[in-house]
Amino acid sequence: MINTKSHILESVSRLIFLFIIIFSIYLFLKGHNEPGGGFIAGIAASIPLILLAMSLGVPTVQRVLKIDSLSLAATGLILAYGTSFIPTLLGYPFLFQKMIHTHIPILGELHIGTPVLFDLGVFMVVVGVSTKIIFSFLETVNSKEKG
């Protein structure tokens, strides 16, 4: 199923890749007010990556990604911890969060704050972890089949 090349799977996963990624970004940004958020967006983003890895092979996807999944997860973890600890250095409580509300011409109202950074950390951890686990399973399976 995996080692025999399927053109349908390949084409479909290439086709839907962009759509699901955009959808996941949408989910991520909408998170604070509507269903979505870092965790869900993270899973949504990792699914097309997994599909691509299944059809094109893990090395190809890793080459395209340019960053190792585990480093991505680690960066996310540092980001999340950073946004939680930095306020304590500035004299605020742990996990203190700040929101900014501004009005940008043409685009409309903008609400942004440190929770977005924290959520971005969660997103990166989820993408990194889920792809790393499944990629390494894929590699194990493939290496066994070759051997």
Binding site: G31, H32, N33, G37, S84, H111, P115, D119
Partner: peptide, 15 residues
């Protein structure tokens, strides 16, 4: 500052 309680619990209340 968010209307989706599920997500504000995740990132804010129970961060």
């Amino acid at each position: 500052k968010g209307s989706n309680a599920v997500n504000t619990i995740l990132v804010d209340f129970r961060g």
